[in-house]
Amino acid sequence: MDGGAKAKDSSLDPHAVRRFLADNPEFLRADPSLLEELGLRPDAANIIDFGPAALARVHEAHRRENAARKHLEATARANFAAQAQTHGAVVDMLDARNHADLARRVDELAQLRFGLVAGVVALEGPERTPAGWRALVEGQIDMIIGHDRVALMGFEPVALGLFGERAPQVRSMAMVRMAIWEPSREGLLAFGSSDEHGFTEDMGVELVAFLARVVERTAERWPVL
């Protein structure tokens, strides 16, 4: 019982502490060491003023707020720039004259618009593969990105072969399935980055998937000859 009573007595009521300090202002002013711990100091007029520690805390809070705001602004600018480049890439692809030209444009926009190592269009099946496209055996896309996955962001060693002689430069990838023609053939749009953080698993795939849909529709203009 005594131990419980002592524990109860030792707990402080914030309202009681406030009333005590209001009724006894000299308690703080007469204790310099306590004022220093609280980051306060009495000025010449005997008024409590902010001390260096308190000012430092305010400055740090302001610095964090500025850093968070700048991060949000930078993210917004990057997203806007990516969308603008994607829209430009769509116009470039729609101007393609044939399958080979479409594959060339995908590779060029990857390098020139997005600063990537390569952009690749690949197609599965024993049937003929358009010029400039990577030929894959049936089931190879499942091996690369997984049977139940539509897209993959990150690094997948088995996908390096897609990038040919530029494979040693690739440190991360963005890949999206495609279905082209009727009956459909499995395809893959792949981009390779030299930055291991260029494409990561936590990134959204919306823009890359949008480009894949554009490649699908554009490729269906022409039969595979």
Rank of each mutant, 00 (worst) to 15 (best):
E37N: 04
A81T: 06
A81N: 12
A84S: 13
A78V: 03
D95E: 11
R69V: 11
T75P: 00
D95F: 10
N46A: 11
V58A: 08
A68C: 07
V58P: 03
D31M: 00
A68S: 15
F50D: 10
L72H: 09
R41M: 12
A84G: 11
H87Y: 15
A82I: 07
H87R: 10
E60A: 15
N66G: 14
A56R: 05
R77P: 03
S33T: 09
R97K: 14
F50M: 06
A56V: 00
A45T: 09
V90R: 00
A68H: 11
F80D: 09
A30E: 10
A44D: 11
A96K: 02
L34E: 01
F50P: 08
V58H: 11
T86A: 10
A96D: 05
A81Y: 07
E65I: 12
A67I: 06
H99Q: 00
A67Q: 12
V58G: 00
G39A: 01
A68M: 10
E37R: 04
A30C: 08
L72Y: 07
E26A: 10
P42C: 03
H59L: 11
S33K: 14
L34W: 05
A44H: 03
F50K: 02
Q83L: 15
K70N: 13
A84Q: 14
D92E: 14
K70V: 11
R97F: 04
A56I: 03
I47T: 15
Q85M: 07
D31P: 02
